[in-house]
Design a protein around this nucleic acid. Structure first.
Ligand code: MN
Ligand code: MN
Ligand code: ZN
Ligand code: ZN
Lengths: 136, 136
DNA sequence: TCATTGATGTGAATCGTAATCATTACTATT
DNA sequence: AATAGTAATGATTACGATTCACATCAATGA
């Protein structure tokens, strides 16, 4: 997902175009990995030192709900990244040092037989963790 | 892993046998799902109202490091359960309502080809979430 | 341009967790 | 059983991440 498409989605849901949201999207569009909410905030502060954490968290949550961002919990923090391809379900390798990700195109749910009688499956999580080439 | 084996492990590492640790292990041994630190604390308070949260967190962390407990992050909390079978690698279905788990004996790493050149894989997470029969 | 409505900043609150340290409880030894 | 050494505990304090309430402000469409 790119910034333009994100704005389309936002407009569809009648969210307004604001400097803060522009900055958040601009920042995350240029990163290729998961980024902690606090780091997004650091960036916003450059142009807008008075930006509040609440604004950051509110918008990140909104964007994730709209499918603009992907979300994961990494060592007790919420981290976000541009939803790389909303149309194609996939998973990620995540570097535990810098947060960079790589696609894992296959989904384990398609490859293993789960025997869970009576349960209502709502979702799943599959992530591989490690160090990317630059972080070793 | 049962309580006796847990005590063996603790003794091997010269951890002492205390009322609090007995209560923690007793409690978790009878549960069949992940339990939040706070809930473990609630139980300990019955016999020992003055127990400190630090004692709970310290011991849960210790037990997890020793492989006595398994640990996962579920809605922003750390949750623990008896390590069901340390010898056999496997995964879990987790009920998002009550925390109960069911084994998933297969591991996706054995069933999908990951193409991650140059990365150093340190671990992976595969969990299926949903509602167990009792929670629907 | 104006009015509407949503977005923002402020500051404090909450939540889960960790650090410090003096006191207390185990455990092994005498 | 009394002791000594050491680990565990509870009290307090603090922390980082996130959320809340609410007054103010700004983007948008009419
Ligand atoms: Mn991807
Ligand atoms: Mn299991
Ligand atoms: Zn990296
Ligand atoms: Zn359940």
């Amino acid at each position: 997902m790119n910034v333009e498409k994100a704005w389309e989605t936002l407009k569809e849901h009648s969210f307004k175009r604001t400097k803060n949201r522009e900055a958040i999207l601009e920042f995350l569009a240029e990163r290729d990995g998961y980024t902690a909410a606090m780091d997004v905030g650091e960036f916003l502060k450059k142009d807008n030192p008075g930006v509040s954490f609440d604004t950051i968290y509110r918008n990140l949550t909104t964007f994730a709900e709209l499918g603009i961002l992907e979300e994961t919990d990494l060592n007790g923090e919420r981290q976000y990244r541009m939803h790389c391809d909303p149309g194609v379900h996939h998973h990620h390798f995540i570097c535990t040092i810098c947060g960079k990700t790589k696609h894992i195109p296959t989904c384990p749910m398609d490859h293993i037989a789960v025997n869970l009688p009576g349960v209502e499956i709502q979702g799943h999580k599959f992530e591989i963790y490690g160090k990317c080439p630059q972080c070793q």
